[in-house]
Computed example of a mutant assay.
Amino acid sequence: MNRTPAAPTPRDDLALCHRLADAADEITVHRYQATDLRVTSKPDATPVTDADQSVEQTLRARIEAERPGDAVHGEEYADTGTGPRRWIIDPIDGTKNFLRGVPTWATLISLSVDGEVTAAVVSAPLLGRRWWAGQGLGAFTRTTLPGTPDAPRQIHTSRIADLADASLSYSSLTGWRQLGLLAGFLQLHDTTWRQRAFGDFWSYMLLAEGAVDIAAEPEVALHDLAAVSLIVTEAGGTFTDLHGTPGPDGGSAVATNTLLHTPVLDALHSHR
């Protein structure tokens, strides 16, 4: 008698995220600072390398083999598939860093089921770090450098409750100006204890670990945010868009340790 295969569990999906990240790391580490790295410009004038394209092609093929029928949304190629299960891929988050020889970049992989991110991995091989989370399973990290302990450890956001004691991480000022929120952002900047433009995935992973307390970006895409949003929330943080709507698909991001979320949103909109 034929039986329908059992649906994958969240742990099964998270395990696949790790295998996909392993495959991505092999490609990106090999192509990083390669003398024959090919770089072109996309229609929006942002750069794309042959490594971005190779990673996404490889991961799409593996997803098709292991989860046939699942949809895929990636940065470099058109969406494929339909249905409630959708993989979201950013092959290299921080492509400008990658092509300039700055080692702060990562592959972001996540699965969304019925519109909610349920499994996520962020892998930054040149930093020797990987982070992951499963819905209801917590958030974790480990060191991946050779010769270092690789036991996973659970991570949690900070308990800082006052903006005057908080550390803020961001990407740039440009988008804030374009949205008319620069004055509010500068007020937040000047109110906090410490400010650094770590940028991209790195801001959110530092937040999830409790090393910074606030991360915000005014203009950003789903593939940039899906994986990091789950890791932040499973670490105890809050992740919304600039209007306070939860989730990674609002086109902007405000992530905090939860205690600071309302004061941060108030500061950002204080000059509107």
Rank of each mutant, 00 (worst) to 15 (best):
A61N: 12
G74P: 08
E76Q: 07
D90G: 08
P91K: 08
D90F: 10
G94C: 13
T49Q: 01
V72W: 09
H73L: 15
P47S: 06
D50F: 00
D70W: 14
N97L: 05
R86A: 14
L59K: 09
L108G: 05
H30C: 02
D79K: 15
R62C: 12
D79V: 15
W105A: 03
P91G: 09
V39P: 00
Y77E: 14
S54V: 01
Y77M: 12
F98K: 02
Q33K: 09
A34V: 00
T104Q: 10
I92F: 03
T82V: 13
I92Q: 03
E66Q: 14
V48Q: 05
D52Y: 08
P84W: 06
E66R: 12
I89W: 05
G74K: 12
A34G: 05
T40P: 00
G69V: 13
R31G: 00
I63E: 11
L59E: 08
R38L: 01
L59D: 07
T49H: 01
P84S: 13
R67V: 09
T58R: 12
I89Y: 09
N97W: 02
G81W: 13
W105M: 04
P68A: 14
A34D: 00
L108E: 12
R85T: 15
T104H: 11
R86L: 13
P91F: 06
V102R: 01
A45I: 02
G101L: 00
G94P: 11
T58L: 03
D52S: 03
I63D: 07
R60L: 09
H30K: 11
A61H: 11
I89K: 03
E64V: 14
Q53P: 02
T46D: 04
A34T: 00
A61F: 05
D79A: 15
I92D: 01
A45E: 13
T35E: 10
D36Y: 01
I89D: 07
T58Y: 07
P47M: 06
W87V: 11
I109E: 06
V55I: 05
A45L: 12
L99F: 04
